[in-house]
Amino acid sequence: MTVDLWLAFVTASLVLCFTPGPTVFLVVGQALAYGKRSIVPLAAGALVGDIILLTSSFLGLGLLLAISATLFNFIKFVGAAYLIYLGIKAFCRKSVSINPNAGLASKECSFIIFRDALLVTALNPKGMVFFMAFLPLFISTAAPVMPQMIILAVSFLAISLLSVSCYALLSGFLRGHIAKPKVQERFNKLGGSLLVGAGLMTASMQHG
């Protein structure tokens, strides 16, 4: 793989990762709801979800999803329903304390945030299909394939982590400077609306 080819992949990945989608909307919504303390579990969950997507694609699940409209639609609607559920829950959430030592900063809450980010990222059938179609474009047949796949995968994961962290930091910063309960509730409603919107967007994705 040449440096130019790798730079082209990095550029394409930056555009893909920083373009708002289900994971970005989830990150923004959760960070608005829970503040800066949600950044680490959100980033970790999205990272593990991307690893699952990449691994599934390498194992051929992406190809199966590209062939089977039924399987694609099943995973799509499961992911969309989960996003909408999270959105409704966030929309109805009352204001929370932004004290970092509050109950919402507990390990249990961090695990829930991590789990939600992981599931929403991993339950993205378009992601699996995309990796199957996208990665081969940047792999040179004149060199061993596996080292190139590892380089591309690590590069993508780093860019994805950067994207999630930036969105979470910005949203968490905004939430962390809001103390009034009524304003916090507006942030909850905004975050919930983003999640419901992401669910509807996921449900409208077309196979192929």
Rank of each mutant, 00 (worst) to 15 (best):
K180G: 05
I151M: 14
L162E: 01
A122V: 01
L195F: 01
A33P: 00
G176V: 06
L65M: 11
V183N: 10
P41W: 13
C166V: 15
L54V: 11
G192A: 13
S160N: 14
L152W: 08
K36T: 07
T70W: 11
K36G: 11
P144C: 09
F134D: 04
Y34F: 10
N188Y: 02
N124W: 07
L169S: 11
A81F: 14
S106C: 04
S68R: 12
V10T: 12
P41D: 06
M1S: 12
A158I: 12
F72R: 12
L169K: 12
V96N: 05
S68A: 12
P181V: 12
L71Q: 10
E108P: 00
P144R: 13
G29Q: 04
S171G: 10
E108F: 09
S193M: 11
L65S: 06
G127D: 02
C166G: 04
L7V: 06
E108M: 08
L170G: 04
K76M: 06
D116S: 14
R175I: 01
L174I: 14
F77H: 13
T11A: 15
L63P: 00
L65D: 03
F173A: 15
G176W: 03
P41A: 13
K36V: 03
L42K: 08
L86D: 02
T11V: 08
F138R: 09
H207G: 05
I67P: 00
K126R: 13
S160Y: 01
A31W: 01
A158P: 00
V40M: 14
K189T: 03
T70S: 15
G79L: 12
M1R: 12
S171E: 03
V129Y: 06
F74I: 15
D116F: 06
F58A: 14
V120C: 03
V96A: 12
Y85T: 05
I178C: 14
A117R: 07
I67D: 08
P22G: 11
S38Q: 04
L137F: 08
A80R: 11
G45A: 13
L170S: 08
I112S: 07
S110N: 11
L162D: 01
L123T: 03
